[in-house]
């Protein structure tokens, strides 16, 4: 049975299909992206759109290379990466802890969950001004904005995940001799993991929105700052290059996370 299963998955992933066929399929699939890119190159070049409004892709690529070479991509990229990692990382640790405890201890649940549920729809971007008030114009306010914005999605997904863990799993573990604390670590948290990880994926997207928005507003460094600085200065080809970099950054962060998620949740099939 397990052998037929692996065969099927292998076939679905295409490893039994010849390389040339797979290449052709990838090409057909990716063609729309190539068409868009070609349109982007041609339209401003032939004067269909003003190159001021849409610099041709080649100009954007050249500008990107320039940004890479003069080190502005690296230095601003590093500070953006640090903000997202610190803010999101903190919210994951605090959020899982708080969410699981809420689900596990009824009195904590009774006090905290109505608050969480009413604050959850809070438009996260509105937190940025308060954080600037509190932490000034440095990285602190950006990290705090990301932390505060990502916290509730992680808390709520951990809470829902932990509450959704099948009662019979908890009882089975207890019947097999696990203490309540062990059950928390060995049953509740793994059982809640699919939902926790989905919540973190959500938080990852929010962290990028907040990172970029905060960097627009708190201008000193970061990719968001770089984009708006270039835009204000009228260097549009470089601005487009910056926007594409941030977009790609967000895209790949999500893809890498998705791979991690699939790996960690392999048991779900």
């Amino acid at each position: 049975m397990s052998r037929t299963l692996t065969l099927e998955t292998a076939a679905r992933r295409g490893s039994l299909i010849p390389l040339s066929t797979r290449l052709a399929r990838a090409l057909i699939r990716g063609l729309p992206l190539i068409l868009v890119a070609a349109g982007w190159q041609i339209a401003p070049s032939v004067g269909l759109i003003s190159p001021e409004a849409l610099p041709p892709l080649s100009a954007v690529a050249t500008a990107w290379w320039g940004l890479l070479m003069d080190g502005s991509l690296a230095s601003n990229g590093v500070s953006s990466l640090w903000e997202v990692t610190a803010g999101l990382g903190l919210s994951i640790v605090v959020g899982i802890g708080a969410g699981v405890l809420m689900a596990w201890y009824a009195p904590v649940d009774a006090i905290v969950s109505p608050l969480m549920k009413s604050l959850y729809p809070m438009p996260k971007s509105a937190l940025i001004p308060v954080m600037i008030l509190w932490f000034g114009l440095g990285a602190g306010s950006k990290i705090a904005s990301i932390f505060a914005g990502c916290l509730l999605p992680v808390v709520l997904s951990s809470y829902n995940g932990a509450r959704g863990v099948d009662q019979s799993l908890v009882w089975s573990a207890m019947g097999l001799g696990a203490s309540r604390r062990r059950v928390l670590w060995e049953v509740v948290i793994p059982g809640a993991l699919p939902e926790i990880m989905a919540g973190i994926r959500n938080a990852l997207a929010i962290s990028f929105i907040l990172m970029v928005a905060a960097e627009f507003l708190v201008g000193q460094n970061g990719l968001g700052y770089l984009i708006s600085f270039l835009g204000d200065g009228g260097v549009y080809d470089a601005m487009f290059a910056g926007v594409l970099t941030v977009a790609a950054f967000g895209f790949f962060a999500d893809r890498v996370y998705l791979l991690l998620m699939q790996r960690m949740l392999r048991w779900r099939e």
Partner: peptide, 29 residues
Amino acid sequence: NGPGRERGIVFQNFALFPWKTVRQNILYG
């Protein structure tokens, strides 16, 4: 008074730990 190892239980929905393999499930207790 509370669950105990001398009383083992089997549920209709199997209640296997889905993140553990067959072997790991049996090993747990």
